[in-house]
């Protein structure tokens, strides 16, 4: 029997059947090949039409192809129908069919502007292996950014390590972290390796998993807050990336910052790819797409 992988989150896809892509003038795509997950988003005239989110494999071109093909599955579209494709994320330069590579910083800002509206000024993107703080204007253009990708503390991968250590499915981490009588002190916030050792010690002392998770979520929130403070926070504030789905981190972040993040009905994990698709559409309008 295969060992359960608690870090493994559910891959998913969706397309909006109320939109007829054949009736649209510009069908474009953005592909975000991140260090942990890959997303593909297809837009029809600036409307979100289809998307997929899956684990990034060892090969960026294959990950990009798989994500795009999965997003297009059941839509009747093929990659040949796309007027322009923008690649983003850490694997963006290895997407052979992308017409342009744009940094994930610019794409997340553009995607967040679409998802949360033009009032977003500070964006936190908590990705798989990095953490970005972005200031943007009302059009989603980046005004300032800070990225930390040297250290796993404050990233999705760090949370995956803890899910595996505690044998708690990653999607249940946030809710379980609130099942504590009182909030414990955060574990080490400077290093995932040290935090893991500390957590093992706490388990040996009889701490329940929920309390250890509360301590780790608080540490991650604190770690990110120190980065946000370096750039400063301007309202409105929003969060993208996989960790945006972890209420255990988001609520503690909100508590420490004293600022409530905006909410959205869109999937915050696809913000980068969505921004890429919106950039792709703009490129077509400027006559720079493959079908311009």
């Amino acid at each position: 029997m295969a060992e359960q992988e608690y870090w493994r989150w559910t891959e998913y896809r969706h397309h909006d059947e109320s939109i007829d892509p054949r009736a649209g003038a510009i069908v474009a795509a953005g592909i975000d090949v991140g260090s942990v997950s890959s997303q593909a988003v297809v837009t029809v005239d600036d409307r979100l039409y289809a998307f997929s989110s899956m684990r990034t494999g060892s090969n960026s071109p294959d990950s990009a192809t798989n994500a795009l093909n999965w997003a297009l599955e059941g839509t009747g579209l093929t990659p040949g129908d796309l007027a322009c494709v923008v690649g983003t994320g850490y694997g963006r330069v290895n997407i052979p069919f992308a017409d342009k590579a744009i940094t994930e910083i610019a794409c997340h800002a553009r995607g967040a502007n679409f998802m949360y509206g033009p009032s977003v000024r500070t964006l936190l993107d908590m990705g798989g292996q990095d953490c970005k703080i972005i200031h943007c204007d009302e059009q989603g253009k980046v005004r300032a950014f800070l990225m930390n990708d040297k250290c796993a503390a404050g990233t999705g991968r760090g949370m995956e390590v803890f899910a595996d250590l505690l044998a708690v499915p990653i999607e249940q981490v946030g809710a379980l972290s609130f099942e504590v009588e009182e909030e414990p002190d955060p574990v080490s916030s400077t290093c995932v390796v040290f935090a893991k050792s500390e957590a093992t010690g706490l388990l040996r002392r009889g701490w329940p998993k929920s309390k250890v998770l509360a301590a780790y979520c608080a540490a991650m929130a604190h770690r990110v807050v120190t980065l946000i403070e370096r750039l400063g926070i301007e309202k409105e504030f929003a969060i993208t990336g996989g960790i945006a789905k972890n209420a255990g981190v988001v609520k503690r972040l909100q508590r420490e910052l004293g600022v409530e993040p905006l909410t959205t009905t869109y999937d915050a994990q696809i913000a980068g790819a969505l921004g890429g698709a919106l950039f792709a559409t703009a490129l077509v309008r400027k006559g720079k797409g493959r079908k311009a």
Binding site: H135, V142, R143, A144, F145, L146, M147, D149, C151, R230
Partner: peptide, 16 residues
């Protein structure tokens, strides 16, 4: 755009 390049780790903050 104010671009902050660098990192923060256990030894400190190093940004240009």
């Amino acid at each position: 755009m104010r671009a902050n390049y660098g990192y923060k780790d256990g030894s400190g903050e190093f940004f240009i």
